[in-house]
Design a protein around this nucleic acid. Structure first.
Lengths: 366, 366
DNA sequence: TTGTATGCGTTATCAG
DNA sequence: CTGATAACGCATACAA
């Protein structure tokens, strides 16, 4: 029983008006008589009129669509952090009447995907996910002259485009200092893939903190791979089985941190007591009891925390501004992660510790 | 340096041909001279010509886009299983030249979203995610007369539309029988939200298996909520703290199962030994070491397993068939989940067990 | 305040 | 094998 689709022309016929007037009435032009406008709107609703997206797009030159290109990781997987980011962006798109286009792609020919999206005029702008330290996509998109916002940033010429990033370097420096203050001296690192700029900067923070306290690096307790559970498990298993296991570890995502927990359980070891763990927590919704601003209860993991969902929202807002506004200067936001103390950190065992330390759970450091 | 976008007309001018011929050459019409076709293709590539999506869509009436509407859960979250599904679907879309449109929505006014998508002709078809036992979306979409495929199915009139589903009832029956065979008599259930048809059917399977072996239901060890980590944790914590904890538990997703592990660790209990766990595993990529066909190694969790990614692929294929083909009859596929034995199941402790049982890990039952 | 005429960039019909 | 020409459904400059 599909009712025939109703077009602007038919709607105008029915109303005994011209297409122009109907179009203007519907699009809120001021010069329309309020009485006719009311009539038009009523009829449009009654007949369930909706303008054809492609016709509107063809006429205006705007697609009212934003592209997200997600690159499948080593494990042919979509980064699960993407889910929450997209949820945040989606809210904003809904509010402003934009659609979200998703392209899944392998790592080869990524640029072609962008070019394709742009030159077929399917999107008005794109969001760049997971920038590498040097990422050819950015100069490429700049050359194309299309609006885009980067979630994260690159090292080259970051002033020339809009981005939103977390201060990853400082976050890991801080987390590391916190562990050192607890008396830990042997601190492992389970990082993401370090061609990713965020992971690279996290390692810098870790190294800087150790260096500042005169602790030598030990690459045998530094790991880097996709942020998935098995990576955390394997890295932890290897460290815990070594002759000189670390007393604390910095983990780049809550997913590998779960793997660390598994490795501990397998050995009947306990977090905090036997191994202190701090994770970078993007507030993955499927691991949190509530929404992004997890409130009240003491979280399980001690974490540096920053919300993916919020980032998604903000990136979407910036991009829409850029698309609709006059060409303003690029904008940047550098967010500080919040340190939240949970149940997975504690003082270093006396044997290795220099000073006994006591910590109250759940203090927040701005 | 945004090169001016090149249109069919300009391309035709450059070539000294008519738009018609150029269009035909590019779209592979047989009546074009192969020499001219080659010339056209060469020029198109050189000038980087791409047809405007909206113009093509307007002319053909096809959007070459498929809509996915994802409803935010209680925790404002996107179901993480969605990620892998979408990765599978995306592969197929890429292969057939379709785009994927994603709409994030709250639970209210879901139907409006579909209506909007369809009547603005933004999509040629939609995928229905997470059908409830009675789901108004299905009759609604049928009435609209638009192509759609359901991932899962509803109870009402399932023959009237295309779907792909896992035999959830049998999967849980099988898992439950396996536990009973191991000597377990007190088996808990940590289920998804039971207005979802898949969760409802899983409970049916669980209940049927118990009933068949003369074991009474005990609602104090049956839980139902969003499939997230904290749900598994809380349910397990509650059961383990009770006077008569279960010796085994059936869990609806690997995420709450991780929560169960946390509850165990907290009490210094061990999986298999102290509590047997079987999970329904959708092969979430961020928890697996490899791709969907996790090969070789013994998995940690004993699981009923079915791949989300494969389901995404197949659903996309069916939908495209339906869009492009002649109106064929609805198709249905009911997949059987595979039982894979990992490290989280073992015989019931002698005190309660009737027969001692020994199990080899990693046998697969087709 | 309303209407006419034209263009947006394709595809498709019908001649040649 | 190729080319005019007319849709497709909307927006908008210009006219009234």
């Amino acid at each position: 029983m599909a009712r025939e689709t109703i077009t602007l022309r038919r709607l105008a016929e029915v109303l005994g008006l011209s297409q122009t007037t109907v179009s203007r009435a519907l699009n809120g032009f001021p010069e329309v008589n309020e009485a006719t406008r009311a009539r038009v709107i009523e009829a449009a609703q009654r007949l369930n009129y909706r303008p054809s997206a492609s016709a509107a797009s063809l006429a205006t030159g705007k697609a009212r669509t934003i592209g997200h290109v997600v690159t499948l990781g080593d494990h042919m997987m979509i980064n699960p952090h993407f889910t929450d980011f997209v949820a945040g962006a989606g809210e904003v798109y809904a509010r402003f009447g934009y659609e979200m286009l998703l392209r899944i792609t392998g790592s080869e020919g990524e640029q072609d995907v962008y070019r394709d999206l742009i030159s077929r005029r399917r999107v008005d702008g794109v969001v760049v996910h997971g920038p590498k330290t040097r990422d050819p996509r950015i100069p490429f998109l700049r050359k194309l002259g299309i609006p885009f916002v980067v979630h994260g940033r690159c090292e080259e010429d970051p002033a020339s485009y809009s981005w939103i990033d977390v201060n990853n370097r400082r976050a890991f420096m801080r987390a590391c200092n916190f562990l050192i203050d607890l008396g830990h001296r042997r601190i492992g690192l389970i990082n993401g893939i370090e061609t990713m700029n965020f992971a690279d900067r996290r390692r810098q923070g870790y190294e800087a903190a150790l260096a500042a306290r005169g602790i030598d690096l030990d690459t045998s307790i530094m790991f880097s791979a996709d942020m998935i559970e098995p990576h955390g498990y394997r890295a932890a298993a290897q460290m815990l089985s070594s002759r000189k296991p670390p007393t604390a570890v910095l983990v780049s995502s809550i997913l590998p941190a779960i793997g660390v927990m598994r490795a501990l359980a397998e050995r009947e070891l306990r977090p905090a007591t036997d191994l202190s763990i701090i994770v970078f927590d993007d507030c993955l919704s499927f691991l949190q009891p509530g929404n992004e601003a997890v409130s009240g209860a003491i979280p399980f993991f001690t974490a540096m925390r920053s919300s993916m969902r919020l980032a998604g929202r903000r990136v979407a807002e910036l991009l829409i501004e850029q698309i609709e506004g006059q060409h303003s200067a690029p904008k940047h936001e550098l967010w500080e992660a919040e340190l939240v103390i949970g149940h997975t950190t504690g003082p270093c065992a006396p044997a290795e510790s220099q000073v006994p330390v006591r910590v109250k759970p759940f203090r927040r450091y701005s």
